[in-house]
């Protein structure tokens, strides 16, 4: 069962009325959101790219929710690089739905059964409060899709070769799930598998977390796939997602090299000068669109990531194929009011 089924035209026809209805719903139930739309003169959208987008950072500076306080079931937080924290409010229904859709998305590549799971991370990370919200939530969220979990790194963050070997002895002859952050997979799984001749050919790797550190080491996404294929790992799926649109992940297809949008989500690449939608091949700022945010107005978000759509309805799965290219640097001003960071520290 796949959630990557709709051709672009059909997807837009299906999503636009839902997203327009969400816009109206959030206007009616989230006053700050309504004020933003009124102040910017929004009336109606005839295309997905006409829908009013919010900069994702607004969830760090404002409390945006469309549910009464007594229906808040879960508050998700993400730590940003500046120390600000996004706050995402879910009611029971939204929390259940995002988990259900996330499951459907990953089951597209994992199948309906839970697989034995190798986590390329350390259990100690769950105790580290500083990194927990981002990395820990990712690991915990994904771990529900596996069973018989084994951590590939010990409590000190060193590779636990024995644990990996034991895992492979027990589960290595049938499909198993490997999950981890891209950089950790490269550093702690690929190199160890290569050096010790581990057989990962039945593994299905799901990884995320950005390419920056790898690009610094001159490892491109293409190189990453090629090298992992060298240790037998050919079923590899990178994904892109954020806490502000929890439950929605954009998943790399079986053909590799690009991310696809599930049926309930889409992306728009915008020109950072005119803010108009850019055609395939032109890089710009990435906007993510999803019908899952029903308890907060996060259904149309402008990210601070740069991206490019490679093609539409021309890949392994239908819809837009795209890549995330990197992060927009944060705006910095010159100015008198600039703190002496060294002195303040």
């Amino acid at each position: 069962m796949s959630v990557f089924t709709l051709a672009q035209k059909d997807k837009e026809a299906a999503l636009l009325p839902q997203l327009a209805a969400l816009t109206e719903f959030h206007r009616a139930h989230c006053e700050p959101y309504d004020r933003i739309l009124s102040a910017s003169g929004f009336t109606a959208a005839s295309e997905i790219s006409d829908l009013p987008w919010l900069p994702v950072r607004l969830f760090k500076t404002l409390e945006l929710k469309s549910i009464p306080d007594d229906e808040v079931f879960k508050i998700l937080t993400s730590s940003g690089t500046t120390g600000d924290v996004s706050k995402i409010y879910l009611d029971k229904a939204a929390a259940a739905e995002q988990q259900r859709r996330l499951a459907a998305t990953v089951q597209t590549v994992l199948g309906p059964k839970r697989l034995p799971m190798l986590l390329v991370d350390t259990k100690a990370m769950l105790k580290d409060r500083r990194s927990f919200s981002a990395r820990g939530a990712g690991v915990l969220g994904m771990s529900t899709f596996g069973r018989d979990h084994v951590w590939a790194l010990d409590l000190d963050g060193q590779v636990d070769l024995q644990a990996i070997r034991d895992f492979l002895t027990k589960h290595g002859d049938a499909p198993f799930l490997i999950f981890g952050f891209t950089f950790l997979v490269w550093l702690h799984l690929y190199e160890v598998a290569r050096d010790h001749g581990l057989d990962l050919s039945n593994g299905i790797l799901i990884h995320s977390g950005g390419w920056k550190k790898l690009v610094d080491q001159a490892v491109s996404p293409d190189e990453f796939r090629k090298r992992l294929a060298g240790v037998g790992l050919t079923r590899i799926h990178n994904y892109y997602g954020m806490v502000e649109q929890i439950g929605t992940i954009f998943l790399e297809g079986p053909d590799g090299g690009a991310l696809y949008c599930p049926d309930f989500a889409d992306v728009v690449v915008r020109d950072p000068e005119t803010w108009a939608e850019l055609p395939p091949g032109k890089p710009g700022l990435l906007e993510v669109v999803s019908t899952l945010p029903t308890s907060y107005p996060g259904h149309v978000l402008l990210t601070e990531d740069l991206g490019v759509v490679h093609g539409i309805d021309d890949g392994a799965w239908p819809g837009k194929r795209f890549s995330v290219l990197g992060r927009l640097p944060r705006a910095e001003a010159r100015g008198c009011s600039d703190t002496y960071k060294e002195a303040a520290a």
């Binding site: 900069p55 607004l58 927009l328």
Partner: peptide, 24 residues
């Protein structure tokens, strides 16, 4: 640049959200 443009949107929307600004 684009980063500054986004920064301005965030701040302008913030002022709209609290009711300090009626038009952006």
């Amino acid at each position: 640049d684009a980063a500054m443009a986004v920064e301005k949107r965030v701040n302008a929307y913030g002022l709209a959200a609290t009711g300090a600004a009626t038009a952006v």
